[in-house]
């Protein structure tokens, strides 16, 4: 419970009828950090975000901001982009953004200036007087992000901000999120695009079945997991067993073999065993992608 402008989710549980959506979920998003929130469909990402925003009430636990429970007044300073996009289709862009800015507590003129600034930033400067429904879906999504940013939030909570964007828009969106985090905001977003999360995020949280099953930097997640090694041993007999405890053969690709090592197992023992069969053409560690880490973590959580 630190007073450092971080967002803390503390022991939050939520149940919908017989379905348990969140079980005693705890994690934090620190100031200046871009936090990727990943998990399968129905794992609890959207429910968590809705509880942070107070749109949904938690059965137990609390959300804290800057060391204090997040109350209605403090929630005014969260920029939110819901999974179900929502704005007024028949309202002019500039007016709509200014309205949302004012609802978040901005003064009239301040809100109008900010609305125009964000439209400019997203290349929609000339469309301020257009109705939202006149825009393409990609542009509507940009406006939705502008709606979360227009009032100068202290925290950003974005549910699937990259879904449905073209590659250029993904870059713009990514740059804006990075910039907001660099300005000192805690930024949390959910996504199924794990490569993007790996590339952008400072830390990643993997949620499954309403529980946080792994959290940390991608490097930390790798370190906490197993090591993967490719060995090319052309002279080894079929079904060769290196006889190293904690090393498991995962894949065979001709004479190339992929081993998975349990945490703490030294790869050098495997190399010695390989050299005993004859020449070793390749011996290398594989950096697992976030996708591979994700699958492993989810499998482990299931077992």
């Amino acid at each position: 419970m630190s007073k450092d402008r971080s967002l803390e989710i503390v022991g939050v549980s939520k149940r919908f009828g017989d379905t348990v959506a969140l079980r005693d979920l705890s994690f934090d998003v620190r100031a200046g950090e871009l936090f990727g929130f990943v998990g399968r469909n129905g794992a609890g990402k959207t429910t968590t975000m809705r509880i942070v925003l107070g749109v949904l009430g938690a059965d137990a636990g609390e959300v804290r901001w800057d060391g204090a429970p997040l109350d209605f007044a403090a929630r005014q300073h969260i920029g939110y982009m819901p999974e179900e996009r929502g704005l007024y289709p028949k309202m002019r862009l500039a007016e709509q953004l200014a309205y949302l800015g004012e609802l978040h507590g901005m003064a009239d003129s301040e809100a109008r200036v900010s609305a125009l600034r964000w439209l400019d930033r997203f290349g929609l400067k000339d469309r301020g007087t257009d109705d939202l429904q006149a825009l393409s879906l990609g542009n509507q999504q940009r406006v939705q992000l502008a709606a979360a940013l227009v009032f100068g939030p202290d925290v950003l909570v974005l549910d699937e901000p990259f879904a449905g964007l073209d590659p250029v828009a993904v870059d713009v969106m990514g740059a804006v999120l990075r910039e907001q985090a660099d300005a000192g905001l805690p930024v949390i977003f959910s996504s199924h695009e794990l490569e993007l999360v790996e590339r952008l995020c400072d830390r990643v949280g993997i949620i499954d079945n309403g529980k946080m099953v792994a959290i940390g930097t991608v490097a930390e997640l790798r370190a906490g997991g197993r090591e993967f090694l490719w060995i090319d041993v052309p002279a080894a007999p079929d079904g060769w067993d290196p006889g190293v405890p904690g090393a498991r053969l995962l894949e065979t690709d001709g004479s190339r073999l992929l081993f998975e090592l349990d945490p703490g197992i030294d790869g050098q023992a495997l190399l010695h065993a390989a050299l005993a069969t004859g020449p070793v053409l390749e011996f290398g560690r594989v950096e697992p992608s976030l996708g591979e880490i994700f699958r492993t973590v989810i499998e482990e959580a299931a077992s």
Binding site: R75, Y80, G86, L87, P89, L100, L103
Partner: peptide, 12 residues
């Protein structure tokens, strides 16, 4: 239009 969720995050 689903704007309800955006609004309810900021207004009772």
């Amino acid at each position: 239009t689903r704007i309800m969720e955006v609004l309810l995050a900021t207004i009772q």
